[in-house]
Write a protein that binds this DNA or RNA. Sequence first.
DNA 1: TAGATTGTTAATCGATTAACAATC
DNA 2: TAGATTGTTAATCGATTAACAATC
Lengths: 214, 214
Amino acid sequence: MNYRMNKQVSITVIRRIPKYYRHLTELLEKGVNRISSQELSNLIGFTASQIRQDLNNFGGFGQQGYGYNVEELRDELGKILGLDREYNAVISGAGNLGHAISNYKGFKEAGFNIVGVFDKDPENPRHSNIEKLDVKPIEELESFIKKHNVEIGIITISKKYAQEIADIYVKAGIKGIWNFAPVDLKLPKNVKLEDVRLSESLYTLTYFIQETVE
Amino acid sequence: MNYRMNKQVSITVIRRIPKYYRHLTELLEKGVNRISSQELSNLIGFTASQIRQDLNNFGGFGQQGYGYNVEELRDELGKILGLDREYNAVISGAGNLGHAISNYKGFKEAGFNIVGVFDKDPENPRHSNIEKLDVKPIEELESFIKKHNVEIGIITISKKYAQEIADIYVKAGIKGIWNFAPVDLKLPKNVKLEDVRLSESLYTLTYFIQETVE
DNA sequence: TAGATTGTTAATCGATTAACAATC
DNA sequence: TAGATTGTTAATCGATTAACAATC
């Protein structure tokens, strides 16, 4: 571990790290190898001061008079986010959303392997095979997770079954759940939860749309 | 307009409103017709104090000694979010994610009508028809928006074409863009933008997964 | 060395929580 | 009326910005 990690870093800061990571990755692809907090600020839109504060939660990645080395900083942030290794993941819910995540190349490239897709009704033709993965019945989920060293459980199944799936994930010893169902899952605190709230995002948009009109 | 609206309400508050809205909708379905800030607190997890502060940004929806009327509060928050009317929306990008959004019943029920789906390559069998909607070529997008009173443009197309689509949306007079592509769209400020950053969400999860291990 | 830019402390700003008077 | 619970002000806490000494 290369970076410093004293006091608990606030969730507000953590949620900005992936944004830095994405921009640094793009800079790297463009062949930029050095950047100052001010230049990053122009790019991302956070203040230079905030950027320096954020990064200093984890250590002094920069160099006075020079700035930051793009590749080094990107790699360090990648390590902080845990992106320096691969993860096996399963999806429960073989609808369109499950398909979308399973087929998305970007996740594979980032080191996320979708090793299994499960559904209540695997024979439904609408849930037909995803790429080269068979859709398996939920009954096999728990043993599959244990056998294949699965750390991440994705929930794209309907709201109705989400907690049931989460319970299986927990029982099988999964480490984190990425949940797309609009329910508040109850989990033991050693299992991490990240919710994607699509409706909430959409409703925020309509709020601002009408704001203009008034 | 029934609710008060003085000073600009902060984005932090706004992003909590859909959460209240969802819980109140569920309470209503369960037949609960009255709730106190303390009971809401137990349900949602925000403090009772914060709930009262949040709601009072928009007006006094409660009654001392009684609490809040569930249906009335839900409806008021719905109005605040602009959910008291329908919206026509189009999707650009007929991949799995486009399909997922287009087929999701919840959006239809909430008043969002997907009136058109567009793609660079509408003949691609993988982009085959979505429910009963033909997938149309991008060339028809601008005129379609103008003709069908479309207010919301959804972007589920690849990163590469996202800005191009956004430009067409803007030119056609769309009011808001719901963007799933991992790019920073450049838009005039009268067009509202809401980004869904799936990767950023996933990377936050891996951060917390490894946190436990260390 | 001189110039640039970080790392970090201090100041400010905003958001959350606590407390309680108002009132149903 | 007495009890409950809001609406709202004041206190606290945390996050952002400003400023500048350290240093490459």
